[in-house]
């Protein structure tokens, strides 16, 4: 099994699940994984209904990551 490397930014209150604000590198012992599995690894609960952007595009929980992506995880928002 290889190592999956991802550039991660956890926005807003989700920063507490990672290494604070800003971009950091996340490594997983896997060849590939879904967005959902990544969130579970980080510890963000599925009930949080996170919005996930992969390389600047919104992706569903079953989207498959292969490593090298830039990922941003946002909390759900209300009101504009």
């Amino acid at each position: 099994m290889g190592t999956l490397k991802i550039a991660l930014r956890l926005q807003g209150p989700f920063a507490k699940y990672g290494r604070g604000t800003g971009v950091f590198e996340w490594e997983m012992a896997a060849d590939r994984c879904t967005v959902e599995e990544l969130l579970a690894q980080i510890g963000i609960p599925a009930t949080a209904k996170a919005f996930v952007s992969v390389d600047g595009i919104k992706r569903d929980p079953d989207y498959i990551l292969q490593g090298g992506e830039r990922i941003v995880v946002f909390p759900p928002v209300t009101g504009g």
Partner: peptide, 23 residues
């Protein structure tokens, strides 16, 4: 003050720029 609302404190509405850009 749960995760569902604290984006208001950490970021506030400017966070939406990236959401609309991304979508």
């Amino acid at each position: 003050m749960s995760d569902a609302n604290m984006w208001v404190y950490t970021d506030g509405t400017p966070m939406i720029v990236e959401l609309t850009q991304t979508t």
